[in-house]
Design a protein around this nucleic acid. Structure first.
Lengths: 246, 246
DNA sequence: GCCAATCATATGTCAGACGTTTAATTGTCT
DNA sequence: AGACAATTAAACGTCTGACATATGATTGGC
């Protein structure tokens, strides 16, 4: 392996890229051990700190893991869905908060994608998924629940719905779309009446999924999306009105 | 800011987490400059290389960018959708290849999610999107195209369809689902007849999207999903048969 | 008043060292 | 011979101090 020392610096980035490419192309297999830091620094003809910076980069993406001790070193990591969830959620959340994504846009994306897995969820839902969905719907009907707790439960409900589709790839992709909405949802103040409406829809969705009725679930999600959007719009209108009288 | 020096090592991970939390909580705003490495090393009471490892971790996630020179330093990065695409694709691709995800599972996820944006795409498609879709469909009909080039064009076609939904959040989420399929698709050998069928469906999809007929597009995607699955199954069957006669 | 040389600052990189963790090896005792 | 304890070696984790390089700001001369 070689590195371009004349390119204007950022050797650690080049090294990270070289190793990442080796992993993605299959030259390095899962659980295979990389050379030690000392060996890598010799191979790439750079110092050990530079190699370490490169390895930290890869570690941040969960591409490698490191282990101390005699048989330690850096190993190609088997990227698990659970590990990827966290990164996906972090990235999605920041994307929304840093790019002035409107509530409407994020909401549309979330419900469009969620609707896609309604038929699969209706087909494959287990008792576990149903129980989670009903438990969260029940929690949402408790009086005295803070808005934040209501949102958290809402996210849990929808994740159960997504997971019911029993497709890990879908669960992974939607983790970001569902969870990243939470900060946006937290801006909404839920009145008793709006909560009642949402809980009713959640309950109906659980019913539809239990009855293996994907079309009904899809339809209810459309209603829920419209209602959520309506709530958000009223918050925005109220804020604009308040600003006008300032 | 403080760090637990007694926790069994991995100081750089702790520092990275502290800074990441500060960014996500809004304590550090976009384009805000972090203290210099020397200052950070003093604040956290660690050496500069340790601080640097932490910063590289954050850089790998595109949370910060660094700049050399007098007014340089580390800045909170505005995470852009385009930057996130790459990471999303890398992660998705590795997830599929490292977790024995079956072709059927990945295919189901991709088409389920893609179907979700068919109505939006049909509603909002621009001339640009249509032109791209038709150009790719035409390319796919060229004889002498390698299987790999065929797959690349297939991905481009579907990305155009997704982008036509004009929702950056959807485009981001589906970038992974669509692109990560390519390595799996590359295992398929496309006969002249199967290509013909796929191109016909692609053309019909473009027609439906042009006619603002979301339902028709959805229906065609279902057919395309079924056909793709059928092709993959025949490859698997052929392979099993070959193994049986070995 | 403008332009060029200088300076200050901050990141990028290096060399060498020491501490710590961990597994394998070795050695001793029963 | 076998089990347990001490030693050793390999590797990562961290620190110190230094030099190289990029780049904006300052200063000085014309």
């Amino acid at each position: 392996m070689k590195i371009d020392h004349d390119a204007k610096s950022d050797l650690s980035a080049q090294i990270a890229k070289a190793i990442r490419d080796a992993i993605m192309s299959g030259d390095l297999l899962v659980d295979e051990r990389l050379p030690s830091e000392a060996e890598l620094s010799e191979q790439f003809d750079v110092s050990r700190p530079t190699v370490r910076e490169a390895l930290k980069r890869l570690g941040a993406q969960s591409l490698i893991r490191t282990q101390r001790g005699a048989t330690g070193g850096a190993f190609v990591n088997r990227l698990r869905f659970e590990d990827a969830y966290g990164q996906q959620i972090t990235t999605s959340t920041l994307l929304l908060s840093m790019n002035d994504v409107s509530f409407a846009t994020a909401c549309e994306a979330r419900y469009a994608l969620e609707r896609a897995c309604a038929p699969l969820a209706a087909e494959r839902r287990t008792a576990d998924h149903l129980a989670t969905m009903r438990a969260e719907a029940h929690r949402q009907s408790q009086p005295g629940l803070t808005d934040e707790a209501f949102c958290t439960s809402d996210v849990a409900f929808h994740r159960a719905l997504v997971d019911a589709a029993a497709n890990p790839v879908i669960s992974y992709q939607l983790a970001g779309a569902v969870e990243a909405m939470q900060p946006l949802m937290n801006m909404i103040t839920f009145t008793a009446r709006s909560r009642e409406r949402i809980v009713a829809l959640h309950t109906q969705i659980a019913d539809a999924v239990e009855a293996h009725d994907g079309a009904a679930a899809e339809n209810l999600l459309i209603q829920l999306a419209a209602y959520t959007l309506e709530l958000a719009q009223s918050v925005i209108d109220a804020r604009n009105a308040a600003r006008a009288t300032d």
